[in-house]
Simulated scan of single mutants.
Amino acid sequence: MKQVLLALLLFAAAPLVAQDIKTLLKEAENAERSLKDSEALDKYKQVLATDPDNIQALVKASELSSGIGARLADKKAKKTYFDQAKTYADKALQVDANNADANYVRAVVAGKLTETETENKKIVAYVKEVKDYADKALALNPVHARASFTLGKWHMEMVNLNWAKKAAVKLLFGGLPDATIDDAIKYMEKSRQLDKYFVLNHLELAKAYKADNKPAKAIEILNLLVKLPNRTADDAALKEEGKKMLQDML
């Protein structure tokens, strides 16, 4: 009899739990939209405490952890957030290895970990992961704006590697990967077509055009950039960087 009552209570509680999760997800989205990343991250963590396999919460918790960590000055604190972001991304991939967003955030955190890692071999391994996961995200969703940007940024960074890192990359990849400024621009332009409000993509695209000796195109992109609305906690600072770059080019 007790087991029957317990089963009935659990059955009755299930809709309430689902409703709580839905409410928390909405609150997290609103906090993120208000540029309150830490508050949003806490909400997603609350979702995961109840529903540890919630793919949306895992993806967003990883993305926010990467973003918050990137803003910190202390390298140890940055790494703590990046490691947390990797844990969430890895869990998301365990839940659904063919989820484009999960692959995208895993690519992002691999890129972030290159900033805190000191061992060349591990840095290069992370560099390889960036491309592998971004490639898979785009294979799963060819119109994924942020995955397209991530791949474009990867090409840009490969072009600009110093000789020591090029040697390490060559050793791990079995040769230098095909990376060109043209491909960097191609992927970032694709990202711009898919998401015209993506501030970071505009800034990096302008840098790519400048590096490719196309100042007119860089200025065109920067003029668009400074007029964009702030949609993430990083956008105001990125727009200021773009504004300074524009002033220096005029």
Rank of each mutant, 00 (worst) to 15 (best):
A167D: 04
N141L: 09
W154I: 03
L194T: 10
Q193R: 14
A164F: 10
A164Q: 02
A184G: 05
S148Q: 12
A125P: 00
L140N: 13
A139I: 00
E204S: 11
A147K: 05
K239P: 11
I123R: 12
V169L: 05
V169S: 04
E240K: 15
K165T: 01
V169W: 03
E220I: 02
D183Y: 01
K128E: 06
K214Q: 15
V124K: 08
N141F: 06
V169C: 02
N120P: 12
H202F: 15
A179M: 05
E240C: 05
I123T: 03
H202W: 06
F198P: 10
L176Q: 01
N120T: 02
K186V: 03
D195R: 10
P177K: 04
L222C: 12
A134H: 04
A134L: 11
V124W: 09
T232W: 08
T180N: 09
A206I: 11
P215G: 14
K244A: 15
A147L: 09
M158G: 03
L161N: 03
R192D: 07
D235V: 13
K136S: 10
K131V: 05
K136D: 07
R231W: 00
L161M: 06
K243Y: 13
L138E: 09
D234M: 12
I181H: 01
N141G: 07
A216Q: 13
A147T: 06
K128N: 06
D183Q: 14
L171G: 01
N201R: 08
A179T: 01
W163C: 01
L171R: 06
W163K: 01
Y187T: 04
E220D: 14
L238K: 14
Y209F: 15
K186T: 06
E189Q: 14
I185C: 08
A134W: 08
L200I: 08
L172G: 00
E157H: 04
A218E: 05
A216E: 15
A179D: 01
E241V: 06
Q193V: 08
A208C: 13
T150W: 08
D183C: 00
D132H: 02
L224G: 07
A134Q: 07
V169K: 01
K122L: 14
L172W: 00
K227S: 13
L176W: 04
L203P: 12
E129T: 02
G242D: 11
W163Q: 03
K243F: 13
K170Q: 06
D135C: 13
A147W: 06
D182S: 15
D132Q: 11
A164L: 07
A145L: 08
N120S: 11
K165R: 05
N162C: 04
A164C: 01
L140Y: 13
I221M: 07
V169H: 02
L176E: 03
L172P: 00
K170A: 10
K166L: 04
M158I: 03
Y209N: 10
L205K: 09
E129Q: 14
K190V: 11
K239A: 11
P215W: 12
N141T: 08
E240I: 11
Y126H: 14
V130R: 09
F149I: 02
A164N: 02
D212S: 15
I185A: 07
H144N: 15
L151K: 09
